[in-house]
Amino acid sequence: MNHLSDELLNEYLDNALSNRASVEEHLAQCMDCAARLTALQTLFAEIESLPEVTLSRDLAAPVMLKIKGASLSPRWLTLTIVLQTALALIAIIITAPLVKQFAASSVSVLQPPSLTEVFIRLQSQWVLWLDMLSQLRMPVMPEIPIIEVSSLYFLLTLAGVSMVWLVGNGLLLRNQIKQ
């Protein structure tokens, strides 16, 4: 006798079979297949009874962001960008002679700083920065106070703090330690 496949049993459980009668007939005769079906039913029941687990990190936001980023820009936007680029190029070509003329008259007035001047300025700025940083005062660490207490008070304080520590940790970590 040919046994039913796992796929067929799953489809039977999902009510996705057209010939349920033949499967039921086989299940009535075959103990092995009936046992497999019961095992599958138990497994699905256990899976459904499991509690809902929330993810520690929600991935929806980053994934949606990636999808949005990957989507193509609309056609009108692409056309506008192309048109703007073309207009900008035409404007540059038209105004180029005027800009050249203006630049020629201005350059004669403007004297670019020499390399030495630039170095000197950079150096003076660097010295200023160093000077400013050298004046930085790091916070002074507080001195440990020398507590003048008698040995009895000292021991009592220690005992008190230890009690608070033990009780506090005992109460707050109770559930964790039990687990």
Binding site: I144, P145, I146, I147, F154, T157, L158, V161, S162, V164, W165, G168, N169, L172, L173
Partner: peptide, 27 residues
Amino acid sequence: ARSFGIGLVNFVFFAVIAIALFSGAEK
């Protein structure tokens, strides 16, 4: 909230012990 409570209890305890030891060492 529990983290804050445990942090407070332990910080106070260890800080007191450390200060007491440093203070004792100075003398």
